[in-house]
Design a protein around this nucleic acid. Structure first.
Length: 277
DNA sequence: AGACGTACCTGACCGC
DNA sequence: TGCGGTCAGGTACGTC
């Protein structure tokens, strides 16, 4: 699923294709995905020039000449493609088109999202980006501040680092990955983890995300994620999705667990030997 | 205010 | 083969 490395890959690929282009026409399928409304989305994006391609955590946004920004969150199954505007696409995914922007360079930006957990919006208000937790790739990333916050949290560590208000950009894949790299069981209460372990955990976030970006993100066995060219990500997680396989570190069989219950349940993967409670 | 529970959605997968 | 049930999970919001 798209997390920070996947969002960054998409952003970087779109930047040279979109910046400086004018949006001739825009269309969105449903108000459930599009904010504030379909009509307003079109009105505020049409005839606007895209001035930049930015990202914050998993959020991708494109400042427009008007001062508004076009916002995209890929959710779980969202994809952004740039294709020739004249081309007819019969790809099965195109049944799930949620939005289209026709551009002045003869291309169009297409947002598809089968499971519709994604978001497509336009807003002038970007304060919510500032309220998110620190950006792991940012120059001012203060790992120690996060360590101190975690030390006070009475929440299981996996849930804690998935919280976008603590640190922005981790999802299920990379949260599992950093727990594995720091040898911490995902269900351990954050407040019960030795401070040095927490430092190890937070310290591994940035290099892990950077390695994933270098591989253009991760595509799981379901093939869900594709970059803007339809290519799969080549980052291979050491732990997520590898239930029953041997741990890279010790060879023990990787197990899968579930955090929470009912509709809230989130799966996690761990090595029972390297990550003891 | 922090912790936790609920809802959204549909392709893929599983068991009978 | 076909069909119905279950799973997956990012995030907003409600509740205690």
């Amino acid at each position: 699923m798209p997390e920070l490395p996947e969002a960054e890959t998409v952003r970087a690929q779109l930047e040279p294709q979109l910046v400086g282009e004018r949006i001739l026409y825009s269309w969105a399928r449903t108000a459930r995905i599009t904010a504030p409304s379909i009509d307003e989305f079109s009105a505020r994006t049409q005839n606007q020039t895209i001035v930049a391609a930015k990202r914050r955590g998993k959020q991708i946004y494109f400042p427009l000449q008007s001062g508004d920004s076009l916002l995209v969150h890929l959710g779980m199954t969202g994809r952004l493609h740039v294709e020739d505007d004249a081309q007819f696409e019969s790809d099965a995914l195109h049944r799930h088109i949620q939005g289209v922007l026709r551009l002045s360079n003869g291309k169009r930006l297409v947002f598809t999202d089968p499971r519709t957990f994604g978001k497509l919006g336009v807003t002038r208000e970007l304060d919510f980006l500032k309220k998110m937790g620190p950006e792991p790739l940012g120059d001012d990333f203060d790992a120690e501040k996060i360590v101190q916050k975690l030390a006070k949290k009475n929440v299981r560590i996996k849930a804690a680092i998935l919280d976008q208000n603590l640190v922005a950009g981790l999802g299920n894949i990379y949260a599992d990955e950093v727990c594995f790299l720091a040898r911490i069981h995902p269900e351990t209460l954050a407040s019960q983890i030795p401070i040095e372990k927490l430092r190890e955990l937070v310290g591994t976030m940035r290099p892990t995300l950077e390695r994933a970006i270098a591989a253009r993100g991760a595509t799981l066995k379901d093939g869900g994620y594709q970059d803007t060219f339809g290519q799969f990500g080549e980052f291979i997680p050491q732990i997520y999705g590898r239930k029953g396989e041997g741990c890279d570190n010790c060879g023990a069989l990787i197990e899968r667990g579930v955090l929470g219950a009912g509709k809230t349940a989130r799966s996690y993967h761990f090595c029972p030997n390297c990550q003891k409670k």
